[in-house]
Amino acid sequence: MSTHGIKDVTFGLVDANGKLLTSDAGVGTNGIYLVDGDEEGATTATVSGLEAEGTVAYANDEAKRVSNGQAQPQVALEFLDIDFDELQKLKGYIQDAANGGWTRQLPKPHVAMLLHFRSYTNIDMYEGFANGQLIETGSSHATDNNAETDANTALTYQALTPADNTIFNGEPYKIWMSQDAGFDKAKMLAEVFGGYSATTGGSTTGSTTGSTTGSTTGSTTGGTTPGK
């Protein structure tokens, strides 16, 4: 189905078992961060690698079988802006309490992500990824002159198989349409974000690679209402 626009992008950190991390271990409000603060938001989210061409096997001079490999979704993201502290936690950077600044720490954290957009008939649609890594491959800077030279935040999300193989039937990607029979937004959020609840958040058990000594004052605007 053809679509238009991008309504929002929501992130969450999950542990090695796929359970949502909250409080200082997580991001946003109750463990999820809707990128929708002042002057913040997504401009593009280009998904690739949902399927690859199958490999055809021949017998008796005919195409008899097609084998299909694993999906390897990847999302090229661009944001008008995104909260600095929240982004560092999503990338797996930790803050140096003694000297300031942020550095990468491996292994990188498990990141869940939900994209929200619409059909041409304005039906809400969602693409979810229950596990993956968020990377920022580089940064670009250029001089201002008689016009301001802006550089939007460009990120890449690499989707992985869900840590809990009962999620998405073990696939790295799931898509929803709000008018489908049985669609339940709360269930969708709980599935993508490892048990998320708007009132209680998810589990804070499990490990996280991010530091809890860094600032947690990042934007949480709309954190509990993704897909508004």
Rank of each mutant, 00 (worst) to 15 (best):
D144E: 11
N99A: 08
K187N: 06
N99Y: 00
L106Y: 15
T143L: 13
K91C: 10
V111D: 05
A181Q: 15
T200V: 04
G170C: 09
T205P: 03
K174L: 05
S139W: 00
K108F: 11
F183C: 08
W102E: 00
T149P: 00
S203A: 13
M113D: 06
T225C: 11
F168L: 07
F84W: 09
G206K: 00
P107Q: 08
I167T: 15
G182L: 11
S219T: 14
T205K: 06
S215N: 14
Q105P: 00
T220G: 12
E136K: 12
F84H: 13
G195A: 06
Q158D: 13
G222C: 07
N169E: 13
Y157L: 03
L114E: 04
G182D: 10
Q179S: 15
A142W: 00
D96S: 02
N152T: 10
N169Y: 08
T220Q: 12
L189W: 06
M125D: 00
T166F: 05
L155V: 03
G223P: 09
A147G: 07
L114T: 09
T153R: 08
Y196F: 13
G223R: 10
I135P: 03
H110N: 15
D96P: 01
A190D: 10
V192G: 09
L115P: 01
T224V: 13
I123V: 12
H110S: 05
T121C: 04
L114S: 09
L155F: 06
Y126M: 02
T220L: 09
A130Q: 00
A130W: 02
D144A: 15
Q133H: 14
M188S: 03
K187A: 15
S119Q: 05
E86F: 03
G101S: 13
Q179W: 09
N169W: 03
T103G: 00
E86H: 09
K185L: 07
G218R: 02
G218H: 03
F117T: 14
R104N: 08
H110Y: 10
D144R: 03
D96G: 01
S139M: 01
N131Y: 04
N165L: 12
I94C: 08
G101M: 11
A181T: 15
E171Q: 13
T225Y: 08
K174H: 05
Q95K: 15
D144I: 09
M177F: 08
A198P: 12
M125H: 10
N131L: 13
N165I: 11
P226R: 12
G223I: 05
A151R: 02
Q133W: 07
S197V: 07
I135H: 12
I94A: 06
S139I: 01
G222H: 11
A151K: 02
G194H: 01
P109F: 10
E127L: 04
I135K: 14
D144S: 15
I175D: 02
G194Q: 02
F129K: 11
M177C: 10
A142I: 00
S207T: 14
I123M: 04
P107S: 11
L114G: 11
A186H: 03
N145W: 07
